[in-house]
Simulated assay, not measured.
Amino acid sequence: MVTTAPPLAGSQKLRVRSSSRGWTAAKRSFRRHWQLYLLIAVPIVWFAVFRYWPMSNAIIAFKDYNVVQGVWGSDWAGLEYFQRAFANPRFWTLVSNTFILSALVLIFSFPVPIVLAIALNEVRSTFFRNTVQMVTYAPYFISTVVVVSMTIVFLSPRMGLANQFLNIFGVQSIDFLSNPDLFRPIYVISDIWQTTGYAAVIYLAALAGIDPSLHEAARIDGATRVQKILHVDIPGILPTAMVILVLGVGNVMAIGFEKAFLLQNPLNLATSEILPTYTYKVGLLNADFSQAAAIGLFNAVINLVLLLVVNVVAKRTTGSGLW
């Protein structure tokens, strides 16, 4: 006995047709733009291999990891390492240090590139504008190790330029890097110096995309330069600024490890010890991989929550966000 499949309903036919049309359009697009797909395949593979695949190993935080047994063969430990971290009084000091340092970097580093970009956009001399842009952009290409070395030499108690300048006015030399209270200002100032020029380029690109007719209309209406900045330039770069702000808040707990670790010394650990440096010491130096993974996973979850919350707030208040 031969059975026949029941006929497809109207909605099913529409879905089949739309699916076939989608595949046909995708194949046509791939044949036409295969060079672009090949170009974008490289970063996609990089992110898949070095960003997304390692996420599966975060399960170490819930296991009593043993190198011989491997990630999946190690015994389950549940929330033991999270409880151990939360019960450590020092852990919450590290969370506070990380949050305060990241918040200071975000608060002081976020507006400076905007001010620099607007100022450069108002400069009429092309030579001066290009010179300032090059001078402020160049530090971004200096490695963190070199920046820290320059900072240490500049702030040296004996030969540092900062103390030599203070000595001119009769002020006694200060050991800046040994003072826990001065670690955060030093970190923030060095970060502003290194990243302001790069961030200003993004805002300059956003300023270049503003419709020139808006400036012409403001000029016809008799607006001053300050009024044009307030009512044309700033609203024009606001979407870009909000995206950068959301990304910055989303990385509040993921502040860079290298600079903090290299600026550390036994005298300033009270403020310089943050979660990334503590995770490095626990995981690699003490070989407590499960404890380090638990702290790192906790850090990542906090970043994710902050990113989602700030994106929702930015979307509702300004209409701009990541999605």
Rank of each mutant, 00 (worst) to 15 (best):
T3E: 13
P6N: 14
P7D: 08
L8N: 10
S11R: 13
S11N: 06
K13C: 10
L14P: 07
V16Q: 03
A25G: 01
K27F: 13
H33T: 07
L38E: 02
I40L: 15
A41L: 14
V42H: 04
V42C: 01
R51N: 14
Y52N: 01
M55A: 12
I59T: 01
I59H: 05
I60D: 03
F62T: 06
K63Y: 00
V71W: 01
D75A: 15
F82C: 00
Q83M: 11
Q83Y: 06
A87I: 04
N88Y: 04
R90I: 11
F91E: 01
W92E: 06
W92C: 09
W92Y: 11
N97C: 03
L106K: 04
F110K: 09
F110C: 08
P113G: 03
I114E: 06
L116T: 02
I118F: 10
L120C: 03
R124I: 12
R129L: 04
Q133E: 15
V153Y: 15
S156T: 12
S156D: 15
R158C: 08
M159V: 15
A162L: 15
N163T: 09
F165M: 14
S173W: 00
D175Y: 12
F176Y: 07
D181M: 12
L182G: 08
R184H: 05
P185R: 04
A199G: 02
Y203F: 13
L204F: 00
A205V: 13
A206I: 06
L207M: 10
A208D: 13
G209C: 14
I210N: 04
D211F: 09
P212S: 08
E216Y: 12
A218S: 13
A218V: 10
R219F: 11
I220N: 08
Q227P: 11
I229R: 05
L230F: 14
H231S: 10
H231A: 08
D233F: 00
I234F: 01
I234S: 03
I237V: 15
P239T: 10
L245G: 05
N251C: 12
M253W: 02
I255F: 02
L263A: 07
Q264E: 12
Q264G: 10
N265R: 05
N268H: 00
T271D: 08
S272F: 00
E273W: 06
E273L: 01
L275Q: 05
P276Y: 09
L297G: 07
N299M: 12
V305M: 14
V305G: 13
V309D: 07
N311I: 05
V313D: 10
A314W: 05
T317A: 09
G321N: 08
G321P: 01
W323K: 14
